[in-house]
């Protein structure tokens, strides 16, 4: 293709634009990003687009296989479960539970983690050292065990598992914020603004956060795929979403008893979880790749 301009462009893209340019380069990442957006749309519009209610029992259509099978029925595209509930509707509404809630969970723990992390980065001495070790202890407890303990304190239920997962995810954000802020504080440009008389908080707000935001986002995508798996795992173990809710993990657990007569009730929710985790991981992968490329340039 002929180039219109022989000179390099004058305008200089913002860091985020640069990131986006590097990010969208590999086609796989773009597909993953597309899937991610698709899931967000599904989660938001779940109630509008799902053909039936997720708890409506169609008692004349019990255990209907997906439509492509011989006994299938086109009005129930992905079949029904043992109570005659439409699998497609349940999967779509499950998107807003498993996937949608994982985003909320990550944003909440990101916010809390960043606040604690930056505060701890500004303190030093015994308090800071204690916090450091405390976080190490928390990080070395298996996340599921920690979630189970929090669920045991709060009692089972979807809302409580969300709190549990938020609390499980906070330490890693504290950890990464703390390290990133410390690292940035050691740099010269911070020293420069400090010499200008800027307060620590002001430095944080204007100098440091813009520089660590991508690191946080990349950690957030990692945390999100963990959050999806944790929400689903707790649902699967019967500690999360209460019984009629179409949360994917809980749906899968419900399907296990039907596994040998209606395998789609196990395959489909599992695929949905896999799909959303892969999409999230692809976005995260692309993000880290883009960051690396930008750093190298």
């Amino acid at each position: 293709m002929a180039r219109d301009k022989i000179y390099q462009e004058e305008e200089f893209p913002t860091p985020l634009m640069q990131l986006w340019h590097n990010f969208k380069e590999p086609p796989v990442v773009l597909i993953g990003f597309g899937c991610f957006l698709f899931l967000i749309v599904l989660a938001v519009l779940a109630n509008v687009i799902s053909p039936y209610s997720s708890v409506e029992n169609h008692l004349d259509h019990l255990l209907l296989p997906p439509a492509w099978s011989d006994e299938g029925n086109v009005s129930f595209l992905l079949g029904t479960d043992n109570l005659g509930r439409d699998m497609l509707s349940r999967l779509i509404q499950g998107t807003s539970l498993t996937f949608g809630l994982s985003i909320i969970v990550v944003i909440a723990s990101l916010a809390i983690g960043v606040v604690i992390g930056s505060l701890s980065a500004l303190t030093s001495g015994i308090k800071s050292s204690f916090l450091n070790h405390f976080l190490d202890v928390i990080l070395s407890i298996p996340s599921l065990l920690l979630a189970i303990i929090i669920v045991a304190i709060l009692g089972p239920g979807l809302e409580n598992t969300l709190w549990a997962i938020i609390m499980v995810l906070i330490p890693q954000f504290v950890h990464i914020t703390r390290n990133a802020v410390r690292e940035e504080f050691a740099k010269d440009y911070v020293l420069a603004s400090r010499l200008d008389g800027a307060s620590s908080l002001r430095i944080l707000r204007y100098s440091i956060f813009p520089n660590i935001i991508e690191k946080l986002i990349s950690q957030a995508t990692l945390a999100q795929s963990a959050a999806i798996l944790d929400i689903a795992a707790l649902g699967f173990l019967g500690l999360g979403a209460p019984i009629p809710m179409p949360e994917w993990g809980a749906m899968l657990a419900n399907g296990i008893d039907l596994f040998y007569i209606a395998p789609w009730t196990v395959y489909l929710p599992g695929l949905a979880i896999l799909f959303s985790v892969v999409a999230t991981n692809l976005v995260g992968e692309g993000m880290r790749h883009a960051l690396k490329v930008r750093k190298e340039n």
Binding site: A232, F236, G270, L274, V277, V278, N281, E285
Partner: peptide, 18 residues
């Protein structure tokens, strides 16, 4: 590797048994 750490372990276990 990407598939491996994205797959929910309870699903993997069930499929492995099957």
């Amino acid at each position: 590797a990407m598939l491996g750490y994205s797959i929910p372990v309870f699903w993997l276990g069930i499929l492995a048994i099957l």
